[in-house]
Nucleic acid binder design. Sequence first.
DNA 1: CTGTTAGCGCCTTCAA
DNA 2: TTGAAGGCGCTAACAG
Lengths: 342, 342
Amino acid sequence: MRPGAGRVTIADVARAAGVSIPTVSKVINQRDGVAPATIVRVQEVVAQLGYETSLVARSLRSSRTGVVGILVPEFEPFSTELLRGISSATTGTGYELLAYAGLVTGADQPGWERRSLSRLSGTLIDGAIVVTPTTALSSSSIPVVAIDPHTGPEGHATVDADNEDGAVQAVEHLLALGHTRIAHLRGRPDLASAQLREAGYRRALVTAGLPVDEGLVRDGGYQEDRSAAVARDLLTIPDRPTAVFAANDSSAVGVLRAAAELGLRVPEDLSVVGFDDVPQASTTTPPLTTVAQPLAELGSRAVEMLLTMLRGEPASDHVRLPTTLRVRRSTGPSPARVTPGA
Amino acid sequence: MRPGAGRVTIADVARAAGVSIPTVSKVINQRDGVAPATIVRVQEVVAQLGYETSLVARSLRSSRTGVVGILVPEFEPFSTELLRGISSATTGTGYELLAYAGLVTGADQPGWERRSLSRLSGTLIDGAIVVTPTTALSSSSIPVVAIDPHTGPEGHATVDADNEDGAVQAVEHLLALGHTRIAHLRGRPDLASAQLREAGYRRALVTAGLPVDEGLVRDGGYQEDRSAAVARDLLTIPDRPTAVFAANDSSAVGVLRAAAELGLRVPEDLSVVGFDDVPQASTTTPPLTTVAQPLAELGSRAVEMLLTMLRGEPASDHVRLPTTLRVRRSTGPSPARVTPGA
DNA sequence: CTGTTAGCGCCTTCAA
DNA sequence: TTGAAGGCGCTAACAG
């Protein structure tokens, strides 16, 4: 590293231009009270040295940074899709985006969002979008919008998809195909989304005048392996279900796997519906029928809400976007009669 | 907001615990030289107040932050896929991730990466992964790894996919199907990836003993609309090509559109190959045959290189990962004879 | 063991 | 029109 490398600071610029630091600051921030000639000279030096204000130093001093933070537990398909929606909705607004994955410690360390928020807020970011927070973020010093909070819409501003209605659509689709023994692999019972999807499942059955067989409701925990194990069991009971509504796509993939192992053909012998429509869903064998959440739109709506709040205007508290059933090949008419194993 | 809201600062903790600020700092950073009783008391207050050190303030002071920066021009499918690979390769390393899209101004503002890097480095992040930089980032104060740099591997550490070989695979696939008049819609001529893909196209033809008809090489600029326009022209010339190798998937989609407008069936009348394998590629009509880059792996390899560099160990300068042809439905045998328009 | 002092890079009064 | 002084939240040296 050559001498004087590191970063070019405002002091370097001031020295090179033969003025004081505050003068440089004024030029950069376009404050008036600087002689035209001085402005030009400073600008030249800035360009020549490739100086850029340090986001850090600036944010420590002044409250506004022009940066919106996206706090995620991890960058996986769900959050990256949101990110895309957020990104496209942000272009042209003058805000920059800073996505932060602060989950160093183990998986479901609760409170990761509080930690991240605390580390970034008050400094660095003017507002935040928190993805799938597990706790309430009531007392924050900056505007916050939560996307798909695990606790459901509480105090703060919230954007989510209509989980319950999506589940209803999924089950109604199966009912329309003539299925009557429809199982449900539910998600993590502590998450609002899982509760809502189960509620939708039950509501659809009840509406259709069918009883809910509690033996057909099992825990898949949103996980593929666990769901596969549970499905193996579920599909070998007497009078097995002819259709399974899995709480998410990972679970559905687990069911598909179990079915293949048991020699059950999908959809001839068994119909499977997932939830989320992750990219992988269209590449399974057969392609998975699933309920899609408008991820990109969830993201863009969240930014819009946040920007409104940043402008100091009142924003709607909760936005709920519709989900859409995506019919692919994993669902079909109910087999006339079910004989175990085939 | 309750009085004294905002952010809980180290001063608040110190006051509440009845100690000085540096003492709190020592406890937090687990430095020794603090009485056990004091440690406990401070920790209690920290927990109670929910205090977290400000990333900004800390980074301003100390050099190491434990945060790796990912600098992208924008969050779109390419960069978000990389992000996933980066994210999974980072878990368990103790590093946090900070993805920054600092592109406020127009689209291809050159030098966005310098600006972003300058704003974050020296503070905030310990190292950076820059996605598709348009210029060389030689003199940086922190370790930097570039993914798919538009200028090709130069001074700095680099990870990219084998663009040329991918193009060769694509064209050889078409040759194997009996095509001899194969057009190429090239990308932006200023980008290394585009140059390499064109080079692969030419090499494959030459290797097969076929002449390169310059009339079949057109500029698609990596853009769908522009490619559609160019394709409309290209597909109506006498002795039109029976296959098109587009420099990326967007261009390929443009070709598909143009073909549909002209009443050409794909793949019966025209075969189309893209490049990138964006998620959308599998949902076009028909699904697009394309060359896939191992995006997630590009990301994870980049992190590995960066972490090695951060450890002060020597790292390999350039990593080039193989590309894979993904054969779907947009390619088929060359039609026996081509009659214009059908 | 604890507290005081001195900045990190920048911006904002306020004087000169 | 310019510069000097102070402080944002924090940590690293020292002094007590």
